[in-house]
């Protein structure tokens, strides 16, 4: 499923829209490809993520998912989009601090069940989740309340939660801001390999070009 930006101007950014930007032009994110959004702060990186996630509706122009206008999405269609088609890691992570790491991850099974009438959730098994957690170095934190973790640890939980569902797109907003280079690389490798296995596209935002990622198409906004 391709994501098409068609003359989109986010209302808060209307005055600052310049040429040579994704705003107020036509741009298509093609499924299976990898994109890196690079821009200084205040240029609308998180706004872009919010548009794709369907949390923001304050824009002009049209956002098309495989030709379908997002303005026509019902709440149910949005929930299907978020649960089965497009996985998001928000900049503020949006975890449940009063639940443990494992509960935060397993919540996705309940969400899948809610969509599939309790039959065959398309999530990862607990063993796979533990295996991934081990790769990211948070295996020992599985039974710890998320509220007690450091922000870097929480970022890894949010990444795992995003991976624990079927998706055609995974959109990550500053996912490695609190990770050291080595851990960021491990996380990125995990994300890329899982995305590739599902032929999913990746959109990552990063604050500056310090973090230019190999194999990712840079997109300016």
């Amino acid at each position: 499923m391709d994501i098409e930006f068609n003359g989109i101007i986010p209302l808060p950014l209307a005055e600052f829209v310049t040429e040579n930007s994704i705003w107020n032009s036509t741009f298509t994110f093609t499924q299976g490809n990898k994109y890196q959004i690079v821009a200084p702060s205040g240029k609308g990186k998180s706004t872009l993520v919010g548009l794709i996630a369907g949390t923001r509706g304050d824009f002009e122009g049209n956002l098309l998912f495989e030709g379908q206008n997002s303005r026509q999405f019902s709440p149910i269609r949005w929930s299907q989009w978020r649960a089965n088609e497009c996985s998001i890691v928000f900049q503020d992570l949006q975890l449940f601090p009063k639940l443990t790491v494992l509960q935060n991850l397993m919540l996705m099974s309940e969400i899948q069940q809610a969509h599939n009438n309790n039959t065959s959730p398309k999530n990862q098994t607990k063993e796979t989740l533990f295996e991934w957690a081990k790769q990211l170095g948070i295996e020992s934190k599985m039974d710890v309340l998320v509220g007690n973790l450091s922000f870097g640890q929480m970022q890894r939980v949010a990444i795992l939660r995003a991976l624990n569902r079927p998706f055609q797109w995974i959109v990550l907003d500053e996912p490695f801001s609190h990770l050291d280079t080595e851990n960021a690389k491990i996380a990125l490798d995990l994300i890329t390999s899982i995305a590739a296995s599902q032929n999913a596209g990746i959109i990552v935002t990063a604050l500056d070009s310090r973090f230019s990622i190999e194999g990712f198409t840079p997109v300016n906004i």
Binding site: P75, I76, R82, A83, I88, F90, Q94, L107, M108, A114
Partner: peptide, 9 residues
């Protein structure tokens, strides 16, 4: 938050 993870409203 749960809506943003795709839980049906």
């Amino acid at each position: 938050t749960i809506l943003r993870q795709g839980y049906p409203h």
